[in-house]
């Protein structure tokens, strides 16, 4: 029984360790990211041809904590088009990146086609 108990404590310890490392790595990585962004700038001056690449993507959205992110993609797509209809496409370019990052190309293609055909069920 004693062995079991010590084992149990070890178990919960090791798994909380995993959790902590994930968290720690996250912090480290954020620092790294900033560094990369800083490093990228001088490079950009050297090679005018290559676009400056900032390693960044659609952030986690607390509205969509599910494993299935289909609604996340769909909502971001609609939000962009709502924004574009209200403010103009150029002002909403950053929002377009948000849906592009997470929507499968085929889905966007299909939706764009529907929009062109006028068969899109949405408001925008």
């Amino acid at each position: 029984m004693l062995i079991l108990l010590t084992r149990f404590f070890k178990l919960s310890l090791s798994h909380s360790l995993i959790y902590n490392t994930i968290q720690k790595q996250n912090e480290e990585e954020q620092v790294e990211e900033e560094q990369v962004a800083a490093e990228e700038e001088p490079e950009q001056e050297e090679e005018a041809s290559s676009e400056d690449i900032v390693v960044k993507t659609t952030p986690f959205d607390p509205r969509f904590p599910q494993q299935n992110q289909a609604k996340h993609c769909y909502t971001r797509y609609n939000e962009y088009h709502k924004c574009a209809a209200e403010k103009g496409e150029e002002e909403c370019a950053s929002m377009a990146r948000l849906y592009r990052s997470i929507c499968p190309g085929e889905w966007v293609e299909k939706w764009n086609e529907e929009r062109d055909n006028g068969t899109w069920p949405g408001r925008y």
Binding site: Y19, Q23, N26, T58, P59, F60, Q67, S101, I102
Partner: peptide
């Protein structure tokens, strides 16, 4: 911890 989505940098 497998479910956890820590602020991703690449998709």
């Amino acid at each position: 911890s497998m479910d956890e989505i820590t602020d991703p940098a690449v998709t």
